[in-house]
Computed example of a mutant assay.
Amino acid sequence: MKKQILAVAVAGAFAVPAFAAADTNVTLFGQLQTQIVHQSASGDARFNDGFRVMDGGGTSTGSGSTAHLFSNNVDGANPNRIGVMVNHDLGNGLTALAKIEQNVTTTDGFNSGARDAYVGLDGDFGRVTAGRMSSPYSTAGKDPLNGTFMQQRVNGGRLAPGGFGWGGFANGSYLDRGLRYSNDFGMVNLDVAAFIDNSNDSDTAYAAKLGFDVGPVEIYGAYQRADDNNQTSGILGFVDGTTNDDDDATATKLRTAKIGVDFRQGPWRVNFEAEDFTAENENNITGMQERSGNTYFAAGTYSMGSTDFSLTLGHTSNDPAGQANVDSVAFGVTHHMSNRVRVFGGVAHTDVKSGGPDYTAVGGGMRVSF
């Protein structure tokens, strides 16, 4: 009798989701990657050459303006995630959305932070979302080697996310309290967002991306402005005092802009991107601190069946002169065992100018998605 009751209870538990699925689609998704990489450095006695097992990272630690400040690699900027996406059909072409996505690593499990976490509406008018999300400015996926140790956003060819210096205002990171709208208008794509500062909504950060799809070519530009938004705290290592010019707790002013071209035809893909950045901080303790510069990124990929051959180049110019200028190059081979499983390998080299060290990484890894 108890077994029959248990069977009925289990059947009932599964019947409710099945009934709800008539107008709701719930998708569990994720991916996990790990790599074995040998890293070496010349001109940096602090760096310990050797093999590492890591999920992401790069040739050294940091990027552009910060690569020369650290000795050994931090495992970050990886593609690993697990999440749930909900699409609820409201009728008349309107869909309600909910997404929650969590970072996951092979060392810390689920203890490495949140990614997307938002609700929204999708329809003929476009898509509106609210919550935690990436900025429209982010174009991390333009790099064919993104998420691996060969990625340019960590090695010196693009603005880097997270602990590498630019927080969520970079390529491939996330910001809280966002309101975002996107839509396609024929060949034109518009993507805009605002990120609210709850302590002072006049310090809201803004980002926008405008793209033009012209046959095999996408031409796009993006801009980002964040004055005193509380999510700029600590960007580029700025240290804030207890008071500053506007009695705000952060007082970091940030401007970033980029233009890019992405060409795809047949087995070829070629893309180029240029960024301009300025960040400044002024307070009663440190006075005015300012860092500005440019990044340049280029990539070419040739696909032969299920195998991609990719070459990427990056350069970062920093001002003031005390900050490092960086050149970087990477070559990678990616073999798609299926549309969910890939293996990859290659080499990446980062050269920190003005007498700085050179870093080289050689290795390979595997990524599994579901």
Rank of each mutant, 00 (worst) to 15 (best):
F277D: 00
F277E: 03
F277K: 03
F277I: 07
F277N: 00
F277V: 11
T278C: 04
A279T: 02
A279N: 00
A279H: 05
E280V: 04
N281W: 03
N281K: 14
E282F: 02
E282A: 03
E282P: 07
E282Y: 00
E282V: 02
N283F: 05
N283K: 03
N284I: 06
N284R: 11
N284H: 13
I285M: 06
T286N: 14
T286A: 15
T286F: 08
G287S: 12
G287A: 08
G287Y: 11
M288K: 14
M288P: 00
Q289K: 08
Q289C: 01
E290Y: 00
E290H: 05
E290W: 01
E290I: 12
R291I: 14
R291L: 06
R291D: 10
S292M: 03
S292W: 03
S292P: 01
S292T: 11
G293S: 04
N294A: 11
N294I: 11
N294S: 14
N294D: 12
N294L: 12
T295C: 02
Y296S: 04
Y296F: 15
Y296A: 14
F297V: 07
F297T: 08
F297K: 00
A298F: 11
A298W: 04
A298V: 13
A298N: 01
A299L: 02
A299Y: 01
G300V: 15
G300R: 06
G300A: 14
T301I: 01
T301S: 15
T301H: 07
Y302W: 15
Y302M: 09
Y302H: 15
S303R: 15
S303Q: 12
M304I: 12
M304R: 03
G305R: 02
G305H: 08
G305C: 04
S306Q: 10
T307Y: 04
T307H: 09
D308G: 02
D308M: 02
D308H: 08
D308C: 05
F309V: 13
L311C: 05
L311R: 00
L311A: 05
L311M: 09
L311V: 13
T312G: 03
T312W: 05
T312S: 14
T312H: 04
T312D: 07
L313G: 09
L313H: 10
G314H: 06
G314Q: 09
G314I: 04
G314P: 01
H315T: 10
H315A: 14
H315G: 08
H315D: 13
T316V: 12
T316N: 11
T316F: 08
S317F: 04
S317R: 15
S317N: 14
N318H: 12
N318Q: 08
N318L: 03
N318C: 09
D319G: 06
D319Q: 08
D319E: 13
P320L: 05
P320Y: 02
P320G: 07
P320N: 07
A321S: 07
A321G: 05
A321N: 09
A321L: 06
A321Q: 05
G322C: 02
G322H: 13
G322D: 14
G322V: 10
G322L: 09
G322M: 08
G322Y: 11
Q323N: 14
Q323R: 08
Q323I: 06
Q323A: 10
A324F: 01
A324W: 00
A324E: 05
A324C: 07
A324T: 01
N325V: 05
N325I: 01
V326R: 12
V326L: 10
V326P: 02
D327H: 04
D327K: 09
V329W: 05
V329I: 15
